[in-house]
Amino acid sequence: MKRRDDEWVSLLIVIGATLLVAFGLIALVGSNLMVAVSSFLRGIFGSSYAMSEVLVRATPLMLAALGVSIGFKTGFTNLGAEGQLYMGAIAITATALVFPGLPPIVMIPLVILVGFAAGGAWALVPGFLKARFSISEVIMTIMLNYVAINLVGILVRTGLKDPAYPYPMSPILPESANFMQLLPPTRIHAGLVMALLMVIAVHLLVFRSRLGFEMRAVGLNGRACHCSGIQVNRATILSAIAGGGLAGLAGVSEIAGLHHRLIEGISPGFGYVAIIVALLGKNHPFGIVFASIGIAALQIGSMAMQRTAGVPTSIASIVMGALILFLVIRDSRQSIAILEGV
């Protein structure tokens, strides 16, 4: 009982400290606090369109964070969701442009599969190297982000460039590759449905399947799994592929649901924010649903705050960073306490 209370109290302290940082920063840039807060809130709840924008932004975050969380559960620190997302985006663009005549019923499943495979393959590289040669996946996944991002830069200027325009971008994809708009005029698209289905799929995989059990066990104590005859390498590689694939789907969903063409910078760091979302959601699929909506709201709200109150959106990133920092401090304090008790 007492432990429960402590948890709530410490959570309140974390929230309070985060708000203090946010208010301090707003005051620092010389904006009116009341105006800033009200524009922040109105930016999120002010209209049904504002609220729909939150969900639009939450979609790629949710998918990428699910991917990150599977890796984390297995002890595979996947910081490469950004790169995997871009690989998914390249895959859908290339596929749809190569086979423009396919009917939607074939096209949609095909681009989803190809996008998943591309993201998965991108994560397989560090996954395999970690499993086989115990090379740190942390550095490799980050480095592969740069490779993927700049690969997009090359492709939109060469192979996938739209010849009709001088700008670095691909042609508009055939309509058969578009995700359905769910509630026009809002921009909510079928990618949200896909993300929610993936939440359920990940939950089944991680908490109900034998493979998921092995993944979790490997993440908690790989050595014991090894001694018990569980194939640690297999679990690591499969979780890397699944995680990379989900991040790839985030790229697919962004292209098929919003942009309909490949451009540079389709992701304003979704892959990195996804790490924060996964941490906030405690690597649990249901937690990630709430965390992704929460972080999306923070970002959307801060944009409104910039428009109305002149507070730079960078504050949202700082607040996110501070929040994670406080949460990590809180968790470590608890783990220290637990360790001392043993």
Binding site: F213, A217, L220, N221, R223, A224, C225, C227, S228, I230
Partner: peptide, 18 residues
């Protein structure tokens, strides 16, 4: 180190086999 996953329960630790 070698036999148990300390953060899992009894039931799950019993499944730690091929």
């Amino acid at each position: 180190r070698d036999s148990l996953v300390l953060d899992m329960g009894i039931a799950e630790n019993l499944m730690l086999r091929p």
